[in-house]
Amino acid sequence: MLKVEGLSKRFGGLVAVDDLSFEVPRKTVLGLIGINGSGKSTVMNCISGLYRSDSGRVTLGGKDITRKTSHDIARHGLGRTFQVPRLFHRMTLVENLLTTVLDSRRKNAELVEQAEAILDSVELHGLRHDHGEELSGGQQKLLELARVMMFDPDMILLDEPFAGVNPSLCRLLIERIQALLGEGKTFLLISHDLTSIYRLSDHIVVLNQGRKIAEGGVEDIKNDPQVIEAYLGTEAYDG
């Protein structure tokens, strides 16, 4: 579904992503993990067109999207959330969802009804007339997921969806992601919350200083010495 080949991105002298390659097969979840500053969000921004990569190639469903603009990539069927939620703060929750279907030929009333149903599924229906800025941090994460659900892309990039979210909202988020998986969506998931990553991912890629240091199934990654060292330090591994 999504294929990244030799992706590199520099900011001045800093190499944020260095010759990274991975593939996300259709209807699977790829977890992308790494410590702070390892380049995870930069990878996501390069894939979604927010940043222009220095080299490498990104294909989505077989189509080259490397040099496409962000809105073109979205129209190719890629939706995303952000590490810090980027809502439309002075628009209502319903309007936040409707912004993703502005090209739709369906009637407005139908779209509003769908938006309300999605808000209901993430337990935000009661707040549908509130503005984005009036939500709590966890609710903002839920609204971002709801916005992606309304957008209905085939490929979904989730950047730290569980950060700052209380356990009950976290459970709700996981349920919704699993439901979307059941509908045939494909995910690239970034998270510091390894429990959630291990629970949801089919395959994991580990980044350190922009480079891929490990890749494999959940059990492989849990026991990989390089991953343990990167997360906990050399002493932890030796001990």
Partner: peptide, 24 residues
Amino acid sequence: SRLGMALKAIRDDSEAAEAMGINV
């Protein structure tokens, strides 16, 4: 209008609007 909604999204966060498929 839908154009008005696109503009409000651009006003609030143009990069997020672009990521939602709006031709900013």
